[in-house]
Design a binder for these strands. Sequence first.
DNA 1: AAAATTCGTTCTATATAATGAATAATATAA
DNA 2: TTATATTATTCATTATATAGAACGAATTTT
Lengths: 119, 119
Amino acid sequence: MIGDRVKEMRMKKQLSLSELEECTGITKSYLSNIERNISTNPTIDIIQKLASGFKVHPLVLLNWKEGKKELQSTNDSLEYIKYRINSMDNEQLRELKDYVSVIEWKRRKIPLCDLIKFI
Amino acid sequence: MIGDRVKEMRMKKQLSLSELEECTGITKSYLSNIERNISTNPTIDIIQKLASGFKVHPLVLLNWKEGKKELQSTNDSLEYIKYRINSMDNEQLRELKDYVSVIEWKRRKIPLCDLIKFI
DNA sequence: AAAATTCGTTCTATATAATGAATAATATAA
DNA sequence: TTATATTATTCATTATATAGAACGAATTTT
């Protein structure tokens, strides 16, 4: 439950609801509802504000890492990559890192209309 | 904008709004509003349903980049790779997996016969 | 001691997320 | 052509996320 994680992180940072309101821009009344699991389905905008206030990656709040395994159970690419990179030296890692960038760049650079043609 | 990514992914999979409605459980009218950027702030529940329907990690839809700068400043390739692969879809992971195999094959850490099995 | 802050909660109000049905638009088939 | 699906949009409605107070209970200050 996301409310439990929000409360735990706020406690660790020793913040009051008012202080968290100030650094996230979320009203303390709503923060209170989230922490008590009265509101359990916040929007992505709220998640971003929380992550920004706590200075953490949004995934820390969402705890979606487990779901990923199930979602990608159809292929073993991710597990294979994770397993193999642990035995790579720095030179190999640097080469792979560059290729990661290339893969993501390709995804952004190709216009939608051109993409559809080749699929 | 999240609507653009939803539409792009739906087009790539050649799905109609009705088909996407069926595999996500989200009504097509709302899907239409999302794709046209009329609704731009869905809840995390909707994000999870979309990710489940598309069979990708939710981060692919959200395109959140927080923490990127710190990862680059440390210049740690391994952390950078681990971070980036979490936001890749299956198609990208398969491509990256192949490149991992190639990198390792260059060093002969993987026998060619084993490499072929993975590609 | 009271008075003033600060705490978290509980109300009410509003914006909008999300649904369901009807509609228009476009394709497919008879 | 006419009819029948299937497309995506629009409209009306419900549900709920979120805001903006006000509230009593603890603290802190004077």
